[in-house]
Amino acid sequence: MPVTPPRPKDLPLTALRAFEAAARLGSFALAAAELGVTAGAITAHVKTLEATLGATLFQRTPRGVRLTALGQTALPGFTEAFDALGQAAQSLRSAAAPRRVHIATLPAIAQLWLSPRLPALRAAAPDIEISITALEHPPNLKRTPYDLSLFYGADPQGMLSEDVIFPVCAPALARRLKHPADLATVPCLSDAVWSDDWAHWLGAAGETFVPRGPVFSLYALAVEETVNGAGVLVGHADLVAGHLKRGTLVAPFALGVTLPRHLRLWSERPLPAGSAARRTADWLRTLGTAALTP
């Protein structure tokens, strides 16, 4: 007579994923953001895992959570496993849709750098389907379904160009600006994310006044308002190049300041020669700078 004893229960995969993210990031809130759930869900999953194990993985403190010795021992293996799972899933997606390329990028880069280049890219490679997701921060390419990441960063790997900044404005407004000190008399537009742009440039120009003007949460909107004559904005060379070429914006001063970061295009996994992602990356690296729509 066959014996069929009950099979021991596996540890819940969702709970393991929550533990790994919280342990790697050092925060239940950051883990929740990465996994697209609430912090309460992460807490519940971790509690379920700890109850199943009969052991504690995190120490709760008023300042947050800290891994126990057991949690520290377990983390590397799960990080390696979930990295491998993420890369296997992305390889499967790429094999299932070999002509589709998904790019993650900053909203400003998507609108002002990448979008103007897409017509030329489609003309050069009509068989490739490009999808773009605008994100405020670079994603973890080992875990997320993106082929390429296009952001500013300090890592020189995948560098496309340096991030050079300088004031820009509409031509009519530029006629009022003879010296950097004249900026104190006009509205100086700012971006909420790159809030230190003015300090960098004015410091290099030897000016100490605090610029005044509207603040925008979207850099592309700040650029459009600058084109409309609302004031002067610190332009990032790569992002305002199209407007400078068309003459809708001008740079009233010759001084440019190079920031300690670059425009980067990279992938977390090797891109096979001839693949759609590799062709797209190569095109953007070699021809992107000259591919602006007139």
Rank of each mutant, 00 (worst) to 15 (best):
Q111G: 07
Q111F: 02
Q111P: 03
L112T: 10
L112Y: 05
L114P: 13
S115E: 15
S115L: 11
S115V: 08
P116V: 06
P116R: 02
P116C: 08
R117S: 08
L118T: 11
A120D: 14
A120K: 13
R122S: 09
R122Q: 13
A123M: 11
A124R: 10
A125F: 15
A125G: 01
P126M: 10
I128F: 09
I128A: 04
E129A: 15
E129R: 15
I130F: 06
I130D: 12
I132L: 15
A134M: 08
L135M: 14
L135Y: 07
H137M: 11
H137S: 12
H137V: 12
H137N: 14
P138M: 07
P139M: 04
L141A: 13
L141Y: 07
K142F: 14
K142N: 15
R143D: 08
R143S: 11
R143P: 05
Y146H: 15
Y146D: 10
Y146G: 08
D147G: 09
D147W: 08
L148H: 07
L150Q: 05
F151P: 09
F151W: 04
Y152T: 11
G153R: 01
G153N: 05
A154Y: 01
A154N: 06
D155I: 05
D155W: 01
P156D: 09
Q157N: 06
M159D: 06
M159E: 14
S161I: 02
D163I: 09
D163R: 06
D163Y: 00
D163F: 03
V164R: 15
I165E: 04
I165G: 01
F166E: 12
F166Y: 13
F166A: 15
P167N: 04
P167Y: 00
V168W: 04
C169P: 05
P171M: 03
P171A: 00
L173F: 01
L173M: 10
